[in-house]
Design a protein around this nucleic acid. Structure first.
Lengths: 143, 143
DNA sequence: TCTCTAAATGAAAACGATTATCATTTATAT
DNA sequence: ATATAAATGATAATCGTTTTCATTTAGAGA
């Protein structure tokens, strides 16, 4: 249940952000992609059709979308930052090391482990990071 | 069961790397720390006692130690890179958002989830990333 | 519809982190 | 003790990201 352009646009407005043409384009490019995107990749995509949109706007838009959890930041991939489209529910990601495609999954309850850790370590758990990397079907067949 | 200076030194030699005084110092600083360290932090620590050791050497040493899995790279923290000392067994980390202390844990079997994902998504799982953030006991008491 | 204002934009510069270069030094095998 | 490939440190180069600032504009209100 990935977020749609409309929902993202509505969420932006709801939080007092203006819905500029540039932001529409960026949001469109993110929702159209099946995979993870670095800021530079997103810029390249956007720049083809809209050469007047600057890299700075890409960064600023990603920052806002991230803060509203409309996009998710990925960590397991390479060295740089990369993003994928968000969903309304809590979920995690599997990222293809071949093509970068991102598949969401949910329904995995991590709280038993959190309780164990609270008990054993005395930490008050605040958050977690759970991602998988692997090879998607298509990339496996092409090999 | 964190790795000791001796074990790390031995592993380096075993893989054909030279055991230079600079590397000894870097390894010493990493094993002495209870928390996560960015390259810059590690440099600062090392630089106090050994002003002639350059930042480049820090980066190069971390790269080697990382490739041999003698240190672990952390992701859940801030934006930059950070490392912590490794262990012989597979494990995961809890990182204190207050002081940066890192606690290892193991004995959590993630393979049932991996099997579910293989079944449901067709991915061949290659690896995973599992980290927790939270507040350690000491930081909670100081608040 | 017109006007106004705070927010958003884009170009450029600044910045910080990381990597490459290269002449010099050194750990280790012999 | 020697030879040699590896490692080092200073510097420059590079990359990704953020800041700055003058200009433009979305959206609220008249």
């Amino acid at each position: 249940m990935r977020l749609t352009e409309k929902r993202i646009a509505a969420a932006l407005r709801q939080h007092g952000y203006k819905l500029t043409p540039q932001r529409r384009v960026v949001i469109g490019a993110i929702t159209a992609s099946r995979g993870q995107l670095t800021p530079a990749e997103l810029y390249r995509k956007v720049h083809q059709e809209h050469p007047n949109i600057g890299l700075t706007t890409i960064y600023r838009t990603l920052e806002i979308l991230g803060s509203l959890e409309l996009v998710c930041e990925l960590h397991a991939g390479g060295s740089g930052r990369s993003y994928t489209i968000g969903t309304p529910e809590h979920h995690h990601h599997i990222i293809c090391s071949g093509c970068g495609e991102v598949v969401d999954f949910s329904g995995y309850d991590i709280s038993p482990l959190e309780e164990r850790l609270t008990r054993e370590t005395g930490f008050e758990i605040e958050g977690h990071l759970l991602e998988f990397t692997g090879r998607c079907q298509r990339c496996r067949q092409n090999a």
